[in-house]
Write a protein that binds this DNA or RNA. Sequence first.
DNA 1: GTGGTCTAGACCACG
DNA 2: GTGGTCTAGACCACG
Lengths: 121, 121, 121, 121
Amino acid sequence: MIIRINEYSDIPIYMQIRNQIVMGISSGELSAGEQLPTVRALSMEIGINTMTVSKAYQILKSEGYILTDRKNGARVRMEINQSKSLSNENADELRRIISEAKISGIAKEDFNKLIDEMWGK
Amino acid sequence: MIIRINEYSDIPIYMQIRNQIVMGISSGELSAGEQLPTVRALSMEIGINTMTVSKAYQILKSEGYILTDRKNGARVRMEINQSKSLSNENADELRRIISEAKISGIAKEDFNKLIDEMWGK
Amino acid sequence: MIIRINEYSDIPIYMQIRNQIVMGISSGELSAGEQLPTVRALSMEIGINTMTVSKAYQILKSEGYILTDRKNGARVRMEINQSKSLSNENADELRRIISEAKISGIAKEDFNKLIDEMWGK
Amino acid sequence: MIIRINEYSDIPIYMQIRNQIVMGISSGELSAGEQLPTVRALSMEIGINTMTVSKAYQILKSEGYILTDRKNGARVRMEINQSKSLSNENADELRRIISEAKISGIAKEDFNKLIDEMWGK
DNA sequence: GTGGTCTAGACCACG
DNA sequence: GTGGTCTAGACCACG
């Protein structure tokens, strides 16, 4: 899995890493139980500090997406907690995005199509 | 229109103001041409620095949502640019939210229902 | 409130800080809404790096014990979530401690007295 | 006696082994003088490095819980030192746990009941 | 002035 | 070899 950092983004690097790994898990690009690159390997690959990668991994761990053990590094968790609901933050964000979509003149059916595409088959 | 600030949110206050005004425009609570409160009035009402409100208005202006002139203060723009598409940032955010929704076990039809509710009739 | 770091402890410094603040809240030494020292002030006071203090505060924040805002720094949260149960980790620790207490020959009534003292009137 | 290792726990494996053996002694599952499995046998059984098991046994020996000799391997000590008091570390941990229990809204009588259950009849 | 982010570099426990 | 911890120092956004 390739992580791409946008150094000009307002989103902190550790959060970009976190987000891309979550999206990789969601898309199936990273499968349950799969090994993630080591903190050192990933930090060298994308040219950032190990602390920054480590912070991303710790967030993913605290969110229950990955597990780390001392021997093997980090792996995607086999059973991720299925809350079956959006976090309040994500719900707020979604409301904001929908508001902006409506103002920009996107039709409801086009927005639905966009969601379908992003969700995947 | 009432603006509610969460001073402990990770979202900067100026961005909370900006977001709520955009959502007000989108919902129709703020209509085209409608006068916004002055920077001074709004800052007093929500108990924050005028600079913070001013920053929110500047962003809204640069995004094309409002117009300001010295005489009349700020007003909702009559014709907001209808790009008919999401910004790259919003598209990225939407992808992230959908990813997290999928991992959390939300069914596609339930997500669609949520979108419908948020979008409004 | 005075924070004391034991540099020889196996417990990481950020965790010692976190623990002492939690105990301060529990004992009432830190009351709801009370201002915590700034990251910089506390790090200077106890002679450690700001990052280490910052990590302690971030953990306390994520656990719901404190709130931070950009203007005023960190404060004890007014309503802390009342789960009314021990975490699994704390329950495991408690079981281990009780086992060791029993082996060391502590009588049940003496252990109860110890709990009473620690709990406070 | 069955040892269960959680490879993802923050508690080092050697400490998990140490803890479970101490709890086994405390509960009576391991009786005074009873033979422990050899380092080699236990390490194979739970699928970990012999060094890790060896470290656990060394700690148990230094704490006075077991005796080792080349001929007979490790055995539970006949008379374990009865200090009749908690170690400083355990007392600190207990204070921390009680603090968190109080904050989480657990009533004193419920905490006492929990202690009773964990202590056993 | 406040917390948040990031780096370069170091050391350590674990296994 | 792995992640975890910590430092000294810097810069930044927010308000």
